[in-house]
């Protein structure tokens, strides 16, 4: 049975929500960097020791990513077809800003590009980095990478896009599942933007911390 656009949309939201869960979990893990090299490295080791479980989580994550991207790509094609011919001039009538909403596919692609870069950069890289003449493993790798301002900038920009993506998408989930009433819509939008910005700032705090302290 073919899925309706609404079903696809709801699946995007489910997978999106799963990815949000990952983003938050990942963030809490990353924050161990502030506790020092041992905390972070132990955490990484703990994850690796999970073995099969880690792979299960990874496969789940990849599946969510693939479904999320596949369906959104499908919807983007659908939308281009639905317009037919293009307007000479097109403006937003609404008072409500829609910048983050309209660049969703773009912010998504930026995130994808970033994720690939990020995996090569940290996940598949050799986990070593020498700080003050000592190899401090993963911690060292992260810190030395972020000591390069350009490298940090890439991360911060990517996080800005993640923030934009989430600003729109978190409130979007409520609308997509029919949990919004008019009186609550504005509140939900504000909270959504706050969380989106919050996550971007929180992630970015790591490279900023490194730049300022090393």
């Amino acid at each position: 049975m073919a899925l309706s656009t609404l079903q696809k949309k709801q699946l995007v939201a489910v997978t999106g929500l799963g990815l949000v869960g990952f983003v938050i979990a990942h963030l809490t893990g990353n924050f161990l960097i502030f506790k020092g090299a041992d905390a972070l490295n132990d955490y990484a080791k703990f994850l690796h020791d999970l073995g099969g479980l880690l792979w299960a989580a990874r496969i789940g994550l990849i599946a969510m990513f693939v479904i999320h991207m596949g369906l959104t790509a499908n919807l983007v094609i659908n939308k281009i077809k639905a317009r037919g011919s293009n307007y000479a001039k097109f403006e937003n009538h609404a008072q409500k800003p829609s910048f983050s909403a309209r660049i969703m596919p773009f912010s998504g692609v930026v995130i994808l590009a970033y994720v690939i870069f990020h995996l090569l950069d940290f996940t598949f890289a050799e986990k070593s980095g020498i700080i003050n003449g000592v190899d401090q493993g993963l911690y060292g790798l992260v810190v030395t990478s972020f000591m390069d301002p350009l490298h940090s900038a890439i991360y911060i920009i990517a996080m800005a896009f993640l923030g934009l993506h989430l600003s729109h998408s978190l409130q979007s989930i409520f609308q997509t599942f029919g949990l919004v009433s008019v009186n609550r819509l504005n509140t939900i939008r504000t909270i959504s933007t706050a969380i989106g910005v919050g996550i971007a700032v929180a992630y970015s705090s790591i490279p900023v911390y490194v730049l300022l302290n090393f």
């Binding site: 949309k9 939308k79 937003n92 409500k96 829609s98 969703m104 819509l185």
Partner: peptide, 24 residues
Amino acid sequence: FGHCTNTYHCEGACPKGISVENIS
């Protein structure tokens, strides 16, 4: 027709002010 991406442009353009709460 296309699908909704919750941009809410429609509500702004609707001459009768129909709310996006209906989409929800």
